[in-house]
Design a protein around this nucleic acid. Structure first.
Length: 296
RNA sequence: GGUUCCUUAGCCAAGUGGUAAGGCAACUGACUGCAACUCAGUGAGCGUCGGUUCAACUCCGUCAGGAACCU
């Protein structure tokens, strides 16, 4: 039995996971795209060293900022870790806010093991509209689903076809769209206003804890051009410095982006997973505990 | 007390005598190798009252609120 704790940023997922793990001698697997990276601690609200020492935490800080990481890598590592813990017979608690990572690991996503590079330069030169027309030729079904302005996704759908020789739509069509594990999704929610206040407070705490210094240190150590720095808090400081933005404006921007992110997470979890939602942490805790105990 | 100017969605803001750009925020949604990414959709009839006009948010006046300057 796997308990997968989801919800928007700042609701208290990590704390719930920790509490559950302590009570059940369970172990925690990270389901967050940026807590994966080493050295990004303050901005990603990673659990503290003490907490990690107390309870086994997996898939935290395992990738260097230099490395590129994707949902394929996550799928591989997470599944491996799940198998290992199932073998060991401990309760598994996955916590994270990255819906797609969770979905790709837990559901029957078909991601090709190694992806060769294909030359997309012809496509990259096209404007949005013509690029979309190209996808329409290769994979009309997929073209219907992706808006032509969503260049990134249109390009990726074309790339999938070129690499795999099969349409993205047909690859997805072959899947059963069900979870591969006995997993129970537990969602934490709060009224918008309460959540937004918590998020703002959390950002302020991050600033006090030295987020700005962390960003400066890491970006000068590794350079600024890394996927990892797309993370909220890092991105805003890096681009803000270049644009000579005022510190307060940068902080405000981080708050805004965090709120918008929380909103998107709600949309994702509500509509992509079958989640048991709780606005009370205690109730979520009780519910999860019962689920875990039932299987042991 | 006088003169001039301003008043457009939650905020910022463009605009024309013929029925209102855009940005931010908010909300809804999409999401199968960048996902804390990327993308789509949704809102006002223009401070108030009255007048001119075929037609006013756009012209005239009234009142209210605000700004600047003068005394």
């Amino acid at each position: 039995m796997i308990i997968c704790i989801v919800g928007p940023t700042g609701v208290g997922k990590s704390a719930l996971a920790l509490r559950l793990a302590k009570a059940t001698h369970g172990e925690i697997i990270n389901g967050d795209a940026f807590q994966i990276y080493d050295e990004m601690n303050i901005g990603t609200a990673k659990p503290s060293k003490d907490e990690m020492r107390e309870i086994p935490h997996h898939l935290f800080s395992i990738v260097s900022i230099n490395d590129s990481f994707s949902s394929f890598d996550y799928q591989l590592l997470a599944r491996k870790k799940i198998a290992e813990l199932e073998q060991k017979g401990v309760p598994i608690i996955i916590v994270g806010g990255t819906g797609m990572y969770l979905k790709s690991a837990l559901f029957d996503f078909d991601l090709a093991p190694q992806e060769e590079k294909v030359d997309l330069s012809y496509y990259e030169k096209l404007d949005n509209h013509n690029l979309h027309l190209e996808l329409e030729k290769l994979d009309p079904e997929e073209a219907l689903k992706i808006h032509e302005n969503n260049r990134k996704r249109v390009l990726r759908a074309i790339e999938i076809y070129l690499i795999r020789g099969e349409k993205k739509s047909s690859l997805i069509g072959k899947q059963e769209h069900r979870a591969l594990y006995d997993v129970c999704f537990v969602g934490l929610e709060l009224p918008r206003e309460t959540l937004y206040n918590r998020i703002e407070l959390r950002v302020e705490k991050m600033i006090e804890s030295g987020l700005e210094e962390e960003v400066l240190t890491l970006s000068s150590k590794y350079g600024e051009d890394h996927k990892a720095f797309q993370a909220i808090g890092y991105k805003e400081f890096i681009t803000g410095w270049h644009q000579n933005k005022k510190r307060d404006d940068i902080i405000q921007e981080i708050k805004n982006k965090s709120r918008a992110y929380a909103r998107r997470q709600f949309t994702y979890f509500r509509n992509q997973f079958d989640v048991n939602w709780f606005s009370s942490v205690d109730e979520a805790y009780q519910f999860s505990l019962e689920r875990l105990n039932k299987r042991q």
